[in-house]
Amino acid sequence: QWKVGDKCSAIWSEDGCIYPATIASIDFKRETCVVVYTGYGNREEQNLSDLLSPICE
């Protein structure tokens, strides 16, 4: 189960590419979260089910 502060990978809606991110907040009722893309600072809402394991850098 994901928690705030977890590192993950998420698909950015603008280009469909996968980027490393950190979970900033979680809404368990809606099963969504807000991620912050590492190195970019962009925030975006994602479905918890769409999150991927962190990418090894």
Rank of each mutant, 00 (worst) to 15 (best):
G41S: 06
Q46L: 11
I26K: 00
F28N: 10
Y37Q: 03
F28H: 14
Q1S: 12
S25R: 02
V36K: 02
W12V: 06
K29Y: 12
C33Q: 00
S25I: 11
A24D: 09
P54G: 09
G16P: 07
G41Q: 05
E57K: 07
K3F: 13
A21E: 03
A10R: 01
L48F: 05
C8E: 00
S49L: 09
F28T: 12
L48I: 06
G5H: 02
N47S: 06
E57T: 15
E44Q: 07
S53G: 11
N42H: 14
S53Q: 14
D15G: 06
K7M: 12
Y37S: 04
I26Q: 01
G16N: 06
A24T: 05
W12C: 12
S53H: 07
Y40K: 12
G39M: 11
S53T: 04
D27N: 02
S53A: 14
K3R: 11
S13N: 06
F28R: 12
R43H: 11
W2P: 15
T22G: 04
Q1N: 13
C17A: 09
E44A: 02
S13A: 09
R30I: 10
I55N: 09
V34Q: 01
K29D: 13
T38L: 11
W2I: 15
S25W: 09
V35T: 04
E31P: 03
E14L: 13
V4G: 11
I23N: 04
G16L: 08
I55L: 13
W2R: 14
D15L: 08
Q46F: 07
L51D: 01
S13I: 08
N47F: 13
V34W: 10
L51I: 09
C33S: 00
P54Y: 09
I18L: 12
K3P: 15
S13V: 09
E57P: 12
E31A: 13
S49T: 09
E14W: 13
S13R: 07
D50V: 06
S13K: 13
P54A: 09
C8Q: 00
G5I: 06
R43D: 08
L51H: 03
K7H: 11
S53L: 15
G39D: 10
R30Q: 10
P54H: 08
W2H: 14
S25P: 04
E45S: 05
Y40L: 15
F28I: 12
Q1I: 00
F28L: 11
C17Q: 15
D6C: 11
I18R: 12
D6T: 00
C8W: 02
N47E: 07
D15H: 04
I11H: 01
T22F: 08
Y37D: 05
C17R: 15
E14K: 15
S25L: 10
A21P: 07
T22M: 07
I23V: 04
C17H: 15
V36H: 03
T22W: 11
T22N: 04
S49F: 08
N47T: 05
E44G: 05
E57Q: 10
V34L: 03
T32F: 09
G16C: 06
E44K: 03
E45M: 09
F28D: 10
Q1C: 15
I23E: 01
G39V: 09
E57N: 11
Y40Q: 08
L51R: 02
F28E: 12
Y19G: 02
D15F: 10
P20S: 10
C8S: 00
E45P: 04
C56N: 13
V4I: 01
V34H: 01
E44F: 08
L52M: 12
W2V: 15
R30H: 10
V34N: 04
G5L: 02
Y37E: 05
G16Q: 03
E44S: 03
Y40D: 07
I18Q: 05
E14I: 15
P54E: 09
K7W: 11
A21L: 07
F28S: 11
A10M: 08
D15N: 10
K29R: 12
C8T: 00
W12P: 00
S9L: 15
L51S: 02
I23G: 05
Y37M: 06
P20G: 07
D6H: 00
A24I: 15
V35Q: 02
C8D: 00
E14R: 15
C33V: 12
L48R: 03
V4R: 00
L52A: 03
I23F: 00
P54Q: 04
E31C: 07
A21S: 04
V35S: 02
C56G: 13
S13G: 09
L52V: 03
Q46D: 04
D15Y: 08
V36F: 05
D27A: 00
G41Y: 03
Y40S: 15
P54D: 09
I55W: 12
T32A: 02
N47L: 11
C17N: 15
S9G: 11
L51M: 06
N42Y: 14
I23L: 00
Y19L: 08
I23K: 03
V4C: 14
I26F: 01
E44D: 07
N47W: 12
